[in-house]
Amino acid sequence: MATYLDFEQKIRQIQEDIVSAEIRRDIPAVEILKKELDKEVKKTYSNLTPYQQLQLARHQDRPYAMDYINALLENKYELHGDRHYQDDHAIVCYMGYIRGEKVVVIGEQKGRGTKNKLKRNFGMPHPEGYRKALRVAKLAEKFNLPLLMLIDTPGAYPGLGAEERNQSEAIAFNLLELSKLNTPTISVVIGEGGSGGALAIGVADRLAMMRYSVFSVISPEGCAAILWNDPTKVEIATKALKITSEDLSSLGLIDAIIDEPLIGAHRDKEGAAKAIGDYFITSLKALRGMSDRERLDARYAKLVGHGAFTE
């Protein structure tokens, strides 16, 4: 059953009315209600607060990496494991085709339902997950396949084993290696971009965010607890951190916003998958128009160009 947030209740009401009008075969009522729905959707989704966008980014009906992989990838094969410790289910890796283009896909995967959430560790990778991702990224480089990375994590897992196996190094090494990986790379924040755990698969020629995704140095909850000393200040922290796609685009920190359906990817999964597919194909075409040197130089210039300071 679909889940509706507080600010979506009116939309839910109209959608339910449409269903009952359809059962009554009251065609004129359906028409009127559909127009009303359009109006309500526009009204609600054009004026979202940063905190509402955060809720959408975390919405449990929002498509996860596997939803996009299933919708976009043909003749696909999953690749498992870091070859050293174990297979981390919070990160999935695939080879396959998107609209006829060979591609390698790496995604952070949250789970649905208690069993799956546990299996996926709530989308929080351990070091071996990042090491698996890098191993597969190197495969993409070796065979000159484009790499698509789907970011959706609350953050890298903060636990004993993760620290023992050097979570810091796993993330850091990905940042370094992905900065020079010689193949076209495209990263998309599809939901939650949680700090270093997101950035570890976010260093790419193109970094895009879905309209209702967020990207943040710390969770707004964590920020409220540390800087405000008050966990209830989440909404204020969310706003202050400037984590929405609009914020990051206007600050020049991302390359593009992918326009998911206005009503949100969680209500139109096909539309959202199509939007990512379109962005991937368009970006790939542009990146293939550059020589390896040009592409790597442009990526490097972008990465070292980030910062706000005076001299």
Binding site: I171, A172, L175, L176, E177, S179, K180, S195, G196, L199, G202, V203, F215, S216, V217, I218, C223, I226, L227, L241, K242, I243, L248, L251, L253, Y300, L303, V304, H306, G307, A308
Partner: peptide
Amino acid sequence: ARMQESTFSLFQMSKTSAALAKLGE
């Protein structure tokens, strides 16, 4: 990371790591 610079701060991680790749090369 310095939270007051939010994503600007986060992206210093990739910035410094990319530069270290050049030092390594």
